[in-house]
Simulated scan of single mutants.
Amino acid sequence: MEAENHTELSEFLLLGLSQDSKLQPIVFGLFLSMYLLTVLGNLLIILAISSDSHLHTPMYFFLSNLSFTDICFTSTTVPKMLVNIQTHSKDISYTGCLTQLYFFMIFAGLDNFLLTVMAYDRYVAICHPLHYMLIMNPCLCILLVVMSWFIIFWVALAHILLMKRLTFSTGTEIPHFFCDLAQLLKVACCDTLINNLFVYVTTALLGVFPVTGILFSYSRIVSSLIRMSSTASKYKAFSTCGSHLCVVSLFYGTSLVEYLSYAVTRSSQSSSIASVMYTVVTPMLNPFIYSLRNKDVKGALGRLLSRAASCP
Rank of each mutant, 00 (worst) to 15 (best):
K234R: 13
S255I: 10
F31E: 07
L114H: 05
L140G: 03
K164C: 04
C189D: 15
N112E: 09
E4F: 11
L193P: 00
L114I: 14
F153R: 10
C189M: 13
N112P: 10
A204R: 08
R303N: 14
T212Y: 15
L181D: 10
A3F: 10
C179S: 11
W149I: 12
M34S: 09
H128S: 13
L32H: 02
G41S: 04
N137F: 02
A204G: 12
T77G: 04
S233I: 05
S50G: 06
T69S: 06
L206A: 07
L181S: 11
S268T: 07
L184R: 02
Y200R: 13
C189G: 15
H244F: 06
H56C: 07
F113K: 09
E4R: 12
L157R: 11
L36G: 03
S169L: 11
I289H: 06
S267F: 02
H54N: 15
G213I: 02
T202R: 09
Q269H: 11
I49N: 07
V247A: 14
E8L: 13
I151E: 04
F104V: 05
Y132D: 02
L197E: 12
T212F: 15
D191M: 01
A274P: 06
G109V: 03
F103V: 03
L184V: 02
Y102C: 05
R122G: 07
Y259W: 13
S271T: 02
L292H: 09
A237Q: 05
F103H: 07
V39Q: 02
M118Y: 05
V201F: 14
Y290R: 07
S249I: 04
R227V: 06
T172H: 02
L256R: 07
K80Q: 08
N196G: 14
V248L: 11
L161G: 00
V248K: 02
L161N: 06
F113C: 11
L55S: 05
V27N: 07
M147E: 10
H88Y: 05
S51W: 09
L130H: 14
G242V: 00
E8S: 13
M284S: 03
E4L: 12
